[in-house]
């Protein structure tokens, strides 16, 4: 097997004295979609921030395309070809949709390629073209999510980190957005690391999955097999089966959508 595009080994990340990530390791194969599932507060956002350089791990390594990046600033990591679509979209509210997208291409020096990619993202999300000259802050939540994904795509990344793209969106919109995520992966060859609470959607979209619990990876398998596991069914997919009650391995309280 070839080297994974991203290899995270034993990272520990703190908020002050609080250890949020307790020795997490995972890999993402080039060209694949990998998901990390976890309930609210499991540490999904912290993992992504550690990978993209917003936070530095106290211990452990993050290797992207053969380079150690765990101490790099986020703008540097981004220049290596990794785009982070943050939780809560984080658009530039007073810039127009088009300006937001242009900022996504800030690091690029090929105006023709940028213009092409602008058309490409308008192809994925036609509503953004209609609203191109509107302020991003005036868009709906779903439209802002589309903008946030598109803006990341404008950098022509090799890999995208997506932090709960389904958060706060209607099921129909979630489905649309996940369809586009798959297209981005297939058509543009962008490797995707997706963290989600929406296990159903994520497991149906991704190739490989990890389950994160209170800062630790507790399970890793192909998504096809994860979908069949009793614990996953019960805690993340909300399917209760007789007999599962006694074999619970994790703490009881879970949230899922």
């Amino acid at each position: 097997m070839s080297e994974p595009i991203l290899k995270v080994s034993n990272i520990e990340t703190y908020y002050g004295p609080i250890m949020a990530i307790r020795g997490v390791s995972f890999e993402v194969a080039e060209g694949s979609i990998v998901t990390i599932l976890g309930a609210n507060g499991a540490g999904k956002t912290t993992v992504l921030k550690t990978v993209s350089g917003v936070m530095d791990p106290q211990k452990g390594t993050v290797v992207f395309q053969g380079r150690e990046i765990q101490r790099m600033d986020p703008d540097k990591v981004m220049r290596l070809g990794m785009s982070h679509v943050p939780e809560g979209r984080e658009v530039f509210p007073f810039l127009s949709v088009r300006e937001n997208l242009r900022m996504g291409a800030y690091i690029r020096k090929d105006p023709d390629g940028v213009a092409q990619d602008l058309e490409a993202v308008f192809g994925y999300f036609p509503v953004l073209k209609e609203r191109a000259d509107q302020r991003a802050g005036s868009l709906s939540g779903g439209e802002q999510q589309m903008l946030s994904i598109s803006r990341a795509l404008m950098a022509r990344p090799k890999m995208m980190l997506l932090d709960e793209p389904s958060l706060g969106l209607s099921p129909k919109l979630v489905k649309d957005i996940f369809d586009i995520i798959v297209r981005i992966n297939r058509e543009r060859g962008v490797t995707i690391l997706l963290v989600e609470q929406n296990a159903n959607m994520a497991l149906n979209t991704a190739d490989y999955g990890y389950v994160l619990e209170v800062g630790r990876i507790v399970m890793a398998d192909t998504c096809a097999r994860l979908r069949e596991k009793e614990d996953i069914k019960e805690f993340y997919l909300g399917i209760k089966e007789e007999g599962a009650r006694g074999t619970r391995r994790w703490k009881k309280k879970k949230t899922w959508r």
């Binding site: 984080e90 007073f94 810039l95 242009r102 800030y106």
Partner: peptide
């Protein structure tokens, strides 16, 4: 100008500006 818009962007959302590779 690209730099001027980037200044607005960095003023509106510093973290997102970092994510865009803008040297904040």
């Amino acid at each position: 100008t690209r730099l001027g818009v980037a200044m607005q962007a960095a003023s509106q959302n510093q973290l997102a500006a970092y994510y865009m590779g803008i040297p904040v």
